[in-house]
Amino acid sequence: CHSECLGNCSQPDDPTKCVACRNFYLDGRCVETCPPPYYHFQDWRCVNFSFCQDLHHKCKNSRRQGCHQYVIHNNKCIPECPSGYTMNSSNLLCTPCLGPCPKVCHLLEGEKTIDSVTSAQELRGCTVINGSLIINIRGGNNLAAELEANLGLIEEISGYLKIRRSYALVSLSFFRKLRLIRGETLEIGNYSFYALDNQNLRQLWDWSKHNLTITQGKLFFHYNPKLCLSEIHKMEEVSGTKGRQERNDIALKTNGDQASCENELLKFSYIRTSFDKILLRWEPYWPPDFRDLLGFMLFYKEAPYQNVTEFDGQDACGSNSWTVVDIDPPLRSNDPKSQNHPGWLMRGLKPWTQYAIFVKTLVTFSDERRTYGAKSDIIYVQTDATNPSVPLDPISVSNSSSQIILKWKPPSDPNGNITHYLVFWERQAEDSELFELDYCLKGLKLPSRTWSPPFESEDSQKHNQSEYEDSAGECCSCPKTDSQILKELEESSFRKTFEDYLHNVVFVPRKT
């Protein structure tokens, strides 16, 4: 048989008469490798580009789960590009990614509803959504962080984005990388972005840091009482949809009607710091009717980097990364020049730590249904340095008659930039024990000054392991946590139920 035959053949030295091919099969003959313009397919066939392209389009058009959109890589027609490569849609070739590779997620039936953290986790790592997304989240724990972890990498949506009755959302900033909504599939009414009845939605994105392009379709905003109209108009300008909307697409009466839409800028007039305090004062603000001013709200939190936005980490279910302080308005003076500047002394802060701070007014709604208010920009203030805590785990070892090696770990709280350490030492008198000992005694162990690591005695271990207080009263049991108490109650309830079950099964009433 021919060298490319495997198993047997019907005619000697003829690659077209093989029972099976050793390498690849091409047009009725066995070959060692697939010549151009053919590609290896499933490690035994040679196919042309049209064959591989037909497989790709067949799966793409069917949208069946589990099928493969075949691509070409290293002269092979394979189910998908290997790690580190992405497909070129024009020629199906796998090309190296520039940075992290995109991950295209194809949605069944063309859309997916995100109504819980669990459903959001199914899209973790996706960068391109081939379909439409509907966000409908009523509640949950730590929602802002969970949504950002699972949806934060999405850069492109081919269909539309719909935010509907998501009472738990305060902001859409968890879509931190969303840059493009194509609108290839539109919501009824030709809408590519749809926001309806979101009672706590206050911000779409921080438009000073976020760009969003909507290729096709219109915007729809109705019944978002805490979303200011200025935020919607800003989205029109940034996304390129200005002029597409009709009169009733953006409701003037049901958007922002319960919001404090600040239209003035508060400026800080005085800032002073110490290692654990920050004193702030800002310019006074009074609405047209000074009785509408209820006070100020001061927001602050630790910020290692200057990239904080107002609604980071917030949701309507209680999660809030900001510390909020309510401040009463100052006494009002008739003389504008003698107006008191409101302020606040922030206490209990960490030394040498940068804080993000902003302040906003708290006002009631005027009778004319106009909203007044003022808010400052987010500023960054760093507390002063102070003395560091003591170095940890000092170790001293003498390696000769004239040297001592000293080692330690950095302090747990540096409280500033540590530039150097101060080492103090003092000579001590020799131990009298060394002169009084009889060095001729056998088995004498000389006193040693070398360091030995501390260890816990058996008594201390027994005390720590004991669940009861000892007789001397030195140790006591740790208080039980809520989960331990709940577990004990469940076990007790189970024992009672099981005992009742045994009584009912074992003891049967005697027939009379």
Rank of each mutant, 00 (worst) to 15 (best):
L219M: 04
A149N: 10
W205V: 05
V324I: 02
S171P: 00
G348W: 13
A259Y: 02
W352V: 14
D292Q: 10
L227C: 09
I114G: 00
G295T: 04
K409V: 12
G343C: 04
Q403P: 00
P330F: 15
T383F: 00
F268D: 00
S400R: 07
Y167I: 14
L204M: 10
K267W: 07
C126A: 01
L345W: 06
D249P: 10
S319Y: 13
I137N: 02
W207Y: 07
G373M: 12
T215C: 10
G217N: 02
L172M: 09
P394D: 09
G373H: 07
F175V: 03
K103F: 14
W286C: 13
L345S: 08
F358C: 02
D115M: 07
W282R: 00
P225W: 00
D326P: 03
R291D: 09
L280Q: 00
Y194N: 13
Q245C: 10
Y300Q: 15
E262G: 15
A259I: 13
V363N: 14
S321P: 07
R247S: 11
R281C: 02
E156P: 00
G318K: 15
S321R: 11
A149M: 12
P394S: 15
L180D: 10
M346A: 08
L294S: 11
E368A: 13
K234I: 07
R332V: 12
T371I: 15
S116Y: 05
L392Y: 05
L180T: 12
N340W: 09
R138A: 15
N150D: 04
F174Q: 02
G348H: 13
Y223A: 05
Y167C: 14
Y191V: 08
L392K: 15
N211P: 05
S173P: 03
Y160C: 12
G243K: 10
Q354Y: 07
K234A: 08
P388A: 01
I405A: 08
G256V: 12
S208N: 05
D289I: 02
P342K: 09
I378Y: 02
W286N: 09
C317L: 04
N307W: 14
T383P: 00
Q339G: 12
E184A: 09
S269I: 02
T309Q: 08
P304R: 13
A303T: 06
N198S: 05
G240R: 13
W352A: 14
N136V: 08
V390R: 09
K242N: 11
L161N: 00
I135N: 00
T118Q: 01
L172E: 00
G217K: 03
F193E: 00
Q121S: 05
P336S: 08
F268I: 06
P225V: 11
S396Y: 01
Q121L: 09
Y191K: 07
N130K: 05
C228A: 14
R281F: 07
L279Y: 15
F296D: 09
W207N: 09
R370T: 07
Y160P: 01
S166D: 14
T273A: 04
Q382F: 03
D384C: 08
D206I: 04
E237V: 02
G159L: 00
K103A: 10
S119H: 03
M346H: 02
E237T: 14
P391Y: 01
I134A: 08
L349I: 06
E187L: 07
G217P: 02
Q203K: 07
L229D: 09
G131V: 01
A168I: 12
I181S: 00
A149I: 06
Y305F: 12
V170M: 04
T127F: 03
F365R: 08
P394L: 09
V308R: 08
S192M: 02
R347D: 10
S396L: 14
K242T: 04
Y305S: 04
F268A: 03
Q258N: 15
L186Q: 10
F221G: 05
L133H: 00
D289L: 06
L331D: 12
G159W: 01
S333Q: 11
I181Y: 00
Y300S: 05
L180M: 11
T213F: 10
I157A: 00
F193N: 01
N399L: 09
D249R: 07
E109Q: 04
Y380H: 01
S173D: 07
Y300F: 09
I405M: 01
N224Q: 07
A195I: 10
W352K: 14
E236L: 02
Y223V: 15
Q203G: 15
E262F: 08
D335Y: 15
L153I: 14
N150V: 05
R138S: 11
V390P: 13
K234R: 10
S401A: 12
F220M: 04
N211A: 10
S171C: 07
Y380I: 03
V117T: 01
D326M: 07
G313Y: 13
G256Q: 02
W207S: 05
K267T: 09
Q403F: 04
Q245P: 08
E283H: 07
E109W: 14
T309H: 09
L406P: 01
I405H: 03
D257P: 04
R179F: 08
S333R: 09
L227M: 12
N136T: 15
N141A: 08
D292F: 14
C126W: 00
S119T: 05
R347S: 06
V359T: 04
F311N: 10
A374Q: 15
N130A: 11
I405R: 08
C105N: 00
E184W: 10
T273M: 14
L212D: 00
N263C: 07
C317K: 02
I134T: 04
V128W: 15
P394E: 03
F268N: 00
L219E: 03
G183P: 02
F221W: 03
K226L: 06
A374V: 09
K162S: 14
G183L: 01
I154T: 06
T113C: 13
K242F: 10
N263V: 05
E155M: 05
Q403V: 03
A385P: 12
Q203I: 06
E237W: 15
T113D: 08
F268C: 04
I134E: 15
G152D: 01
P388R: 02
P336H: 04
Y355K: 00
P351G: 13
S230Q: 00
I157L: 04
Q216G: 15
W286M: 03
P284L: 10
K407W: 15
N224M: 04
Q339S: 04
S119R: 04
L280F: 04
V238S: 14
A168Y: 13
K350C: 09
S376L: 01
T241S: 08
L201S: 01
R281W: 01
G217W: 00
N399I: 08
K103D: 07
